[in-house]
């Protein structure tokens, strides 16, 4: 063990964010009967898993991690997911949107349709089936104006719904997570982190991430103002021309609706530098699923989305 020191009081923003997140992870794990950590393999859930491992070291994580798998993932992200589960010694559960479609729980949007919204049904079914009473998520308040309104511990009724007009008061660090049977909580330990904080922390901790976050050459097409990677889930239409560009992904969602950004940032320090001068938000730059309406995120969250 290497001695490490910081100066009093705790003033470094990454230390403050880290300690707060660890506090929340421990608090919910201690008070919940059956928590689960939602893990997509994206950078935010990667940071969440890293923090959870720190919170409970040297013990194993006292809860499983769960991937809500849309079946439309980037291959690199799935590889990272499996690597991370093994690296951090976590038990990985997979909730499959394809199974929800096969069981007739949701309508099949077709090969090119977005499965983003369908995830809510798969997620809620898995929470019910496993009797989870708390689900950690990597959502950040700076991502979206509806998320900016949500408590760190966010109550869900027995239908999995969020009621933004009737949130529980949440004072100090007194996280009050009691729920009745059938209800559950979402817990967001990264609420106060910004995209830049996330990257600075990943750099400080020298964490591994899926390779698609770093600049690489890829065949892309320009569709609805976004660079989409050509692959099994994105087939070029006759009027679309395939180009080879140096790109990276700022967020990781479904391959058919997550846009790449033109970037040469190939290392963590280059990404930190790029993010600190960005003038378009990460969701605005890369997420087709947020472009439907003014309150797309609020509407999805009311239905039980992440």
């Amino acid at each position: 063990m290497v001695p490490m020191a910081s100066s009093p009081p705790l003033t470094n923003h990454l230390d403050i964010l880290e300690s707060h997140a660890i506090f929340i992870l421990r608090e919910v794990a201690a008070e919940g009967e059956r928590p689960v950590l939602l893990f997509s393999g994206g950078k935010d859930s990667a940071v969440l898993l890293h923090l959870a491992a720190k919170a409970f070291a040297p013990q194993q994580l006292p809860f499983p991690i769960m991937h809500v798998d849309t079946g439309q993932n980037f291959e690199e992200v799935l590889r990272y997911r499996d690597w991370a589960a093994e690296h951090y010694g976590a038990r990985l559960l997979i909730a499959s949107v394809q199974e929800s479609i096969d069981q007739g729980r949701v309508a099949d949007p077709g090969q090119l349709g977005s499965r983003n919204r369908l995830q809510s049904v798969t997620l809620l079914d898995a929470i019910t089936a496993n009797k989870f009473d708390a689900a950690f998520g990597g959502a950040r308040r700076d991502e979206d104006k509806a998320r900016a309104k949500e408590r760190i511990l966010s109550f869900r009724d027995s239908f999995g719904q969020w009621d933004p007009k009737a949130q529980r008061p949440e004072l100090w660090n007194l996280y009050q997570g009691r729920v009745n049977a059938g209800e559950h909580l979402r817990a967001f330990p990264l609420s106060d982190w910004t995209e830049l904080d996330i990257w600075q922390y990943i750099e400080r901790e020298q964490m591994e991430l899926p390779s698609i976050y770093f600049a690489h050459e890829r065949q892309v097409i320009l569709r609805d103002g976004m660079w989409l990677a050509v692959g099994p889930f994105v087939e070029p239409q006759p009027h679309e021309s395939v180009e080879t560009k140096v790109v990276r992904f700022r967020t990781v969602g479904d391959a058919n609706c997550t846009g790449a950004v033109l970037s040469n940032a190939a290392s963590l320090s280059e990404i930190v530098a790029e993010v600190s001068v960005a003038n378009v938000s990460e969701r605005g730059a890369t997420r087709g699923d947020d472009k439907f309406s003014e309150t797309a995120m609020e509407d999805r969250k009311r239905e039980g989305y992440f």
């Binding site: 009081p9 705790l10 300690s19």
Partner: peptide, 8 residues
């Protein structure tokens, strides 16, 4: 060596 206020 030490743990300051605010540290987990």
């Amino acid at each position: 060596a030490d743990a300051y206020a605010g540290l987990s």
